[in-house]
Structure formats: C-alpha cells, structure tokens
Simulated assay, not measured.
Amino acid sequence: MEPQLTLAYKNEHKYRWIDPFVGRAYKGIYYIYYINTETGKRTKKTTKTRNQREAFRELESFRKRYFNHIGEVKINRLSELNVYYHQYKKDDFRPRTLELYNTAIKKLITFIGDKELRKIIFIDMDKFKGALARVMKKNSVNIYLRTLKAVFNFCKKAGIIYENPMSGINMFKIEEKERLCFETEDIKRLTECMEIPYLERMVRFNLETGVRIGELLNIQWDDIDFRRNELKIRNKDNFKTKTNHEHVIPLSYNMLALLNRNPYIGDKNAVMQQQLPFNGTDCNVLELDFRKNINYVFGKIDGTRYSTGYISKSFKQKITKAGFGDKYHFHCLRHTALTNMANEGISSFMIKEIAGHKNIKTTESYVHPSMAAMRKSLENTNYSGLTY
C-alpha cells in the first residue's frame, strides 16, 4: 500500500486564501479586504480616506504588519512601541542593549511627549538631537540616535510607519580615539605592579589572548577543552558577547600555564577540598586542585564571579600608582595583545578569529605597529639614502 501524503499545514477554517487588497465602498471610502486568520472569515478594515494613493499606501503598511504577524496589535504611540519592542527583541538582545533601547525611547518621550508614531517628523528628531547635545557628550548622543534609527527602521519594515523620521539626521563627527597600547618594554613593569596574584593572572591572560574583560570574567571551566587545547567564548543565560558572536581561541602553552595557576594558593579562606598526590620529591606533600570548587576560571576565592567594574577599577588604581598615566585602562590590554600578534607576523584574518570580530575592518582598526616596531624598521633601513 502506498504511503498517504499529508499537508504539513492544515487549514482549520477551510477558507480560500486571498492577499489583502483595497476596494472602494460606502461614500467612496477605501477599505482593505483580507482573511482573518483567527476566524477564517473575510474581513474589511477602513483606510479612512477617499484618496486612492493614500489608500494604497495604507494597504502597503497593512500588508507588512499582516505578513509579519503583527496584525492588529495596537502600536500607535511611543510608549506602546517601547513595550512591544522590548518583548519582541528580548531573546535577541542582551539586557544592557534592551535597557539602552528603553532609555533612548523614554528620553524621546520626555522631549516630544508620547506622540503618535506617524506624526513624528524630521524636525522633531533634529530638535531632539540638539537638546541631547547640550547636556551630554556627542559620542553619547550618537549612540542614542543610532538606537532610535534602528527602532524606527523596525517600525517602517513592520508597516507601523511610512517613513523613518531619522532619515537625513546626521551623526556628530567624532575625532578618532587613540588606540592606546602598552609598549614591549613596559610589559614587565605592568605585570609586576599588579601585586595581587589573581589580578596579575588576569592581566597576563589578557595579554596572551586579547579577550574582552566581560569575556574574561565569564570564562568557566566547561568552556575549556583541555584535550584539544581550545577555549570557547560563548553566549550564556547571564552573559552575551558584544556582538552575540561566539568564537574559539586555540590555547598556547603560556595560556595553559596561566589557566592551571592557582591565584589563591596559601590563602586560608580558599575553598579547596579535593586533594591530589603531588609528584615531587616529598611524597607527603599534597597539591590541591582548585578547579573543582571554583566555577569561574578567573573568579573569586569562593568560586563566584568578579564584576567588570571592580576589576577595571582595581587595574586602573594599580597602573596609575605605577606611573602609567590616567589615559590607560583595562581595554588597552586587548589593543596591546592584538597589536603584538600583528607585529609578530600573525595574519589579520587569524587575529580577527582570535579577537572574535565579525568584520575584518574592525580588526584592522585595532592592529597597528607599535612604536618599538616602527623605530626598529626605521633604524634597519636607509630609506633616505643619506650618509652621516
């Protein structure tokens, strides 16, 4: 007996499918006719206009909502958009990113009121840009403007608005920031000034890998494959990478040595219960495996995670005390690592994968020759042709 073929989708209402279309009805008003997918019945919706061009514009907007399954959701004002957008994007964005979108929309509401979305125009957004620029840095203003542009683009694609009111709003031009790196001759002084073993271990690992501080502090032992010598930087329930991009870093011998180093050895408060025989000259000495009780690789003595703010502040205090200057910060370690990789001949493509960048242009903006490398090249080449 031949197998019976069945449809993957069953039409419970047995209705004949039709695309939404416009038709003129009572008193010349145009209506949109469509199938209500919940009831299976043909339904009409007024466009509230006798103008054919406006009616077809309304149809285009309705079709976007209809086929994006937004349907008849009431999203008329900024406050309604804020609630809906948060729910719609909560699985795609990190909590901090969602909070940024929430703050941006609320700031706009504070300035122009809870306005109807289709009544927000270019002038509103241009005045809002100017108002922000008077009370905050231009770089911060650009962040809010880009955020709102993304929100309004979503609204346009979903058919909630016809045009993006952010179209034509230019970002402030920001002077390119100096990519600060620690020079090769400063590395030893940098690691020695950390003083605290767990902080020095973090700094050394960062100089080896170039991971972001958030990625560093969220590394768990389950993220490391000691058989293949690989570290996976991945998204978790309580942590998302900067671009939601997961990547794998091959572990060198130096990195493995740092991972196996116990920064709390000798501390009376350390939580270390498992004991392993020590392969040394004295058979009575026991070595403790701290990994069994510390969940986070670069975690606290009780196994919990450090905050990025605490580590950044501690690092800043140490380097300032050592005389490095106030302009340096923890992220400079990432710049230093990527720059040193490039100076040692590692290709930009490999550095891109190690750094977890999505775009090679981002990698190229990080990678630049160090002062020592440039000086060495100048000294070893008689490019001028002069003799002295």
Results as ranks from 00 to 15, higher is better:
H335V: 10
K321G: 03
S314Y: 11
G323M: 10
E364Q: 15
A322F: 14
K352V: 02
H331C: 09
F330V: 14
I346T: 13
Y328E: 06
H335E: 10
S365Y: 01
S314A: 15
K361Q: 14
L338A: 12
G325L: 07
T320V: 08
K358D: 01
Q317T: 14
K327E: 15
K316A: 14
T336W: 00
I354N: 04
E344V: 01
L338T: 04
R334K: 13
S314M: 14
T363Q: 08
Q317D: 13
I346W: 04
R334V: 01
C332N: 15
T339D: 02
T339S: 15
I360Y: 00
E364P: 01
G345Y: 06
Y366A: 02
E353S: 08
A322D: 09
T339I: 12
F315N: 05
P369S: 06
H357A: 07
F330M: 13
V367A: 09
A342P: 00
H357C: 08
T320R: 13
F349H: 09
K327H: 14
H329G: 13
F330I: 15
G345L: 07
N359F: 05
L338E: 01
A322S: 09
D326K: 15
N343G: 08
A342I: 00
M341P: 03
S365N: 15
P369N: 06
K327M: 09
L333H: 05
T362A: 07
S348D: 12
P369Q: 06
M341H: 09
Q317M: 12
K327C: 03
A322T: 12
I351M: 06
T363H: 08
E364A: 10
K318Y: 03
P369Y: 07
Y328R: 11
T363K: 06
E344R: 15
E364H: 01
F349V: 13
H329E: 12
A337N: 07
F349T: 11
T362I: 11
I360N: 04
D326N: 15
A355Q: 02
S314P: 01
T336E: 04
F324M: 05
M350L: 10
K321H: 13
A342G: 13
I360W: 02
E344F: 01
H335W: 13
K361L: 06
